[in-house]
Amino acid sequence: MLELRLVQGSLLKKVLEAIKELVTDANFDCSATGFSLQAMDSSHVALVALLLRSEGFEHYRCDRNLSMGMNLNNVSKMLRCAGNDDIITLKADDGSDTVTFMFESPNQDKIADFEMKLMDIDSEHLGIPEAEYHAIVKMPSAEFARICKDLSSIGDTVVISVTKEGVKFSTRGDIGNANIVCRQNTTVDKPEEATIIEMQEPVSLTFALRYMNSFTKATPLSNTVTISLSSELPVVVEYKVADMGYIRFYLAPKIED
């Protein structure tokens, strides 16, 4: 028996909008730790890891570890039927091939349940060890989204370089090239507007902008984004999901042929 009640149902709606462009089908795993997902895009270039900790739910019952295969476009269709202020409850019986999404309006005057078929998905699960990153950049998520969008009108790839001067996003294309430098800026009115750069050593890596733009679909989840970089490792682009977890996007770099 599985029963997860999330008072801030809009978080789940935003999570689905953040990942459904990157991943088509995925297994949602439920355990005592929480509700999680790990999936790669169809090209195996990017990976998304979601964790919503059990403590973040108002009610969390998961009698045994359960993996539920879902088409994310179909989940998104279901969740779009929930109001932004609705409480969302996920229910599944042991051995069932369906999951039920229950939506309750805040004043309890409307209760809806949507049942969705589950599917069998063969997914490859990767072990991702904790890594020491050469540079970690924390910046406003809207600023990062704007930079990725702007650069993708010029080129297909972005070079992200971190030095003691700041973090530089560069691209080049047929019409020209572009460089955007963000310096560390902690003298702002609100902490979420700060750009904070922790650098152990300079790093410069090249990534496909198409994927970066896809990651920025998570922008509504968090005011800030954290970008962790190490030479010849995938970049990690992390958005916090309130105080209950995170979405992490991993993207493999491009290297010289």
């Binding site: 790669m40 195996h44 991702i128 060890p129």
Partner: peptide, 14 residues
């Protein structure tokens, strides 16, 4: 030319 690496070349399959 830049070669696109794949994510599975960095991490072990579990």
């Amino acid at each position: 030319w830049k070669l696109q690496k794949r994510i599975i070349s960095f991490y072990e399959l579990e």
